[in-house]
């Protein structure tokens, strides 16, 4: 287990790009929270507030040919890996034009076109670990994992999801196959209302890395530079063929489990231990002269415009019509007429 020192080893352009994704993610999440309170969303809204630094640090190192399996608080990572904000709103608003066409919603969306693919999440935590392993195994069988600069698969998971049997099985398989899997564990201290001491018994979640044949690292999830440095090392190691990598970041969920949850079980003591990665990063970058007030305002402005444009466009698009649906779960033509 290696903890990365906080001194920045990351180039400024990357830090600024990273900040941009964090801001855009926060703006979009805030918008979704407002929409939820306005009763404009079907179902709930799951936000990544407080986790943007880690998530964007994962997504920013991914490149075409990689696979990302985001979870429910990865707006920043999804954006960093190329998700179109328009599709975020299309899916959350249940539009027919979204890539789930209203059949699934909110965080269950993926990206299926192009070569920056994101797997569509299913609600059963841990299930996406084997799926990402399988995608990498598929790449290996196709001969795409040769050399020392290979594609990687990144899967995002939390302290709660790490208890799932599927996660155990998937991590174990990744280690056996020695695949370039990067597991980004956001320990946000809470699995819904459940504290860590009821989610795992090992001293630190990263203790599990060795058990599965992974290289494990930890970082302060509220520190953007630490996240960038650590995720960068993990992804690079995976690309070099050093086997699967695990990063466990410590941070605090700054939203309810979903927007339907007021998180009243979060104690003031817990709250006091963790900061908000976004203002923290802004302050650090300003202090270091990487960005000034005007530049920051510009980033927020741009983010709001992008978000607003996407929201308005999506709102104007049609909702699904039950009478137009084909109501058949099969893709194969010859099976569609049967029951």
């Amino acid at each position: 287990m290696r903890t990365v020192p906080v001194a920045s080893t990351v180039p400024d352009e990357l830090r600024l790009a990273h900040l941009r994704w964090m801001i855009l993610a926060r703006v979009i999440d805030d918008r979704l929270a407002t929409l939820y309170k306005q009763n404009a969303l079907a179902g709930s809204a799951f936000l990544g507030r407080g986790q943007e630094a880690l998530s964007a640090a994962g997504g920013i190192y991914l490149r075409p040919g990689d696979i990302f399996a985001p979870m429910i608080r990865d707006q920043a990572g999804r954006l960093a890996f190329g998700e179109d904000p328009l599709d975020v709103f299309r899916t959350c608003l249940g539009r027919r034009t979204g890539n789930t066409r209203g059949r699934d919603g909110n965080v269950h969306r993926g990206v299926h076109v192009g070569d920056r693919r994101q797997l569509a999440f299913i609600s059963h935590l841990g299930a996406m670990v084997p799926a990402t392993v399988g995608a990498l195994l598929g790449k290996r069988l196709k001969g795409e994992l040769r050399g020392t600069d290979t594609p990687v698969g990144m899967v995002s998971i939390g302290d709660g999801g790490m208890a799932a049997g599927a996660a155990h099985e998937g991590l174990n398989a990744a280690g056996i196959e020695r695949l370039p899997l990067v597991v980004m564990v956001a320990n946000n201290q809470l699995s819904y209302s459940t504290y860590n001491d009821r989610s795992f018994a090992c001293r630190h979640l990263v203790d599990r890395a060795a058990a599965y044949g992974f290289t494990g690292r930890t970082c302060d999830g509220t520190d953007a530079d630490a996240c960038l440095a650590t995720m960068g090392l993990a992804v690079a190691a995976a690309r070099r063929g050093e086997g699967p990598q695990m990063v466990v970041a410590e941070l605090l969920r700054l939203a309810g489990h979903g927007e339907h949850d007021d998180a009243s079980y979060v104690t003031p003591e817990l709250r006091s231990r963790f900061g908000d990665c976004l203002p923290l990063t802004e302050r650090t970058l300003k202090n270091q002269g990487v960005i000034d007030e005007a530049g920051l305002a510009k980033l927020w402005d741009e983010a709001r415009q992008i978000s607003q444009r996407a929201y308005e466009q999506a709102s104007s698009e049609p909702e699904p019509d039950p009478a137009q649906e084909d109501w058949c779960a099969y893709s194969a033509r010859n099976l569609r007429s049967g029951l």
Binding site: A127, V133, G134, A135, L137, A166, E169, A173
Partner: peptide
């Protein structure tokens, strides 16, 4: 050969299918 992990075996198949296998 797979380990005794029917969930992962199936999840792996799903992921590989997404890669065109």
């Amino acid at each position: 050969n797979a380990p005794i992990s029917e969930d992962a075996i199936t999840g792996i198949a799903i992921g590989a299918a997404q890669e065109g296998l």
